[in-house]
Simulated assay, not measured.
Amino acid sequence: MSDLRPGIYEHLVTREIGTLLRAVPDNELIDRRSLDIADSHETLARHLAALTRRALRAVRGESDTVRLARQVEIVNRVTNLISDLVPEATGPEELVEAAEELLGLAEGHDMAGRVRFPARPTIPLTGSALLVNGRGQPEIGHELKRELASADRVDLICAFVKWNGVRVLEEAIEEFLTRGGQLRVVTTTYIGATDRLALDRLATMGADIRVSYDTRMTRLHAKAWLFHRATGLSTAYVGSSNLSKSALSHGLEWNVRLAQAEQPHLIDTFAATFEDYWGDPSFEPYDPAQDAERLDRALSSERSGNRVIAIDFAYVDIHPYTYQREILDELAAERQIHDRWRNLVVMATGTGKTMVAAMDYRQLRSTGRANSLLFVAHREEIGTSPWLVDTLILDLA
């Protein structure tokens, strides 16, 4: 690094950068901080990885064989040094001289005495990539089939599930489920875009499905797959592709492929968030034998634009989201601890002020603190101005 330009950084201060910083005329122009011990290992590991990558790329040799042998020697020497410094954190991690990669391990031979390994994704399991269905690039549908071939469990969250999309992946999904794989699907009736026939087919094959019928509160737009592998090489796809034929093939879709080996924190976040949705009562189990008629009504009402009629009040049970629960708890604390009964709640448009008011009133009514609720809105259509920061005044004095 020859100079430091004005801007924001997240660079570790090396000796070279330290020298450049000493040349800055005013120390107030420099913003720096000490490493946080909570994640210092990640920051330092990135620095070491970048340095190692640059060093290995710079290795020269008389031939590719000689160059590779030199790279392996360097890695093994660094590995041994780390093992000497922190023996409790490493095992026998030296590379074999042949520098091989393990690509698979079969359970045994088939009936014909042959060994078959699953098809591999075009993108290495340890790498991330952007798929745009571009010319000369792998289609998202093609890659999903190959991911299914080697996955142990699959989680799919998808706003719209179309019959023609299920047809594209039907054979791969059926083979996955037949060999003991588990498929969980979270979807919605939003704008009536999902096809019941698609959900029925997935359920028939053995998928577990949960559907959100309340499209006013649960505006699910996510489209993402998580392919769990017991080998520790899970992968995920997050992007714009719904489960439809055009989205999986020729549509102008952007999807990012994530690898656990490269970005484990993102895979962990995906898995944890999916579990939250799966356990949320607003996503209800779908069984074609029992729920087909209800799903048809909901989809039909969404397609006609009559979303109020689509609500089945027999199934409505309001539960606060985590951030709404925090607000309700703070309101309760202000009243019970500080005896403050005139409170102001500020929430962005679309985050559920009406629901917070309803749940707060429900709690107050159950304890005999309130018998009526006056709700005043500033306009006939609520929530149509995203630039507004709305307020909710709770005056029980």
Rank of each mutant, 00 (worst) to 15 (best):
F176I: 01
A129C: 08
D214F: 02
G165I: 02
N255R: 01
L148I: 07
H228R: 13
Y213M: 05
H250Q: 13
H142T: 13
A236T: 07
E175P: 00
T188A: 09
Q137N: 09
R201D: 10
G165D: 14
A193Y: 07
V185G: 04
A224S: 15
L226D: 02
P138I: 10
Y213L: 09
A172I: 10
T204F: 11
T204P: 00
N133M: 04
D195Y: 05
G127M: 11
T188K: 00
I191C: 11
K223N: 15
V132G: 06
L183P: 03
L183E: 11
V186T: 14
A207R: 01
W254A: 14
R229Y: 05
W225A: 07
T204G: 14
Q137P: 01
L199Q: 08
H221S: 12
V185C: 06
L233G: 10
N242P: 00
T231W: 10
T189I: 01
L177K: 02
Q137Y: 06
E139C: 08
E171V: 09
R146V: 00
L177N: 08
W254I: 12
R196P: 02
W163F: 11
S212I: 02
Y190R: 15
A203M: 07
S244T: 09
S246Y: 13
T204M: 11
A151H: 05
G192L: 10
V238K: 00
E175S: 14
S244P: 03
Y190F: 14
D214Y: 01
N133P: 08
K162C: 08
A193N: 13
V238S: 12
N164F: 03
H221F: 13
L148H: 06
L183I: 07
T204C: 06
T215K: 01
L226R: 14
V161P: 02
H228W: 15
T194E: 03
Y213T: 08
N164I: 02
A230R: 15
A222H: 03
R184I: 00
A149T: 02
W254F: 07
L220E: 04
R219H: 08
L199R: 09
G180A: 05
G232T: 10
M205H: 10
E139H: 12
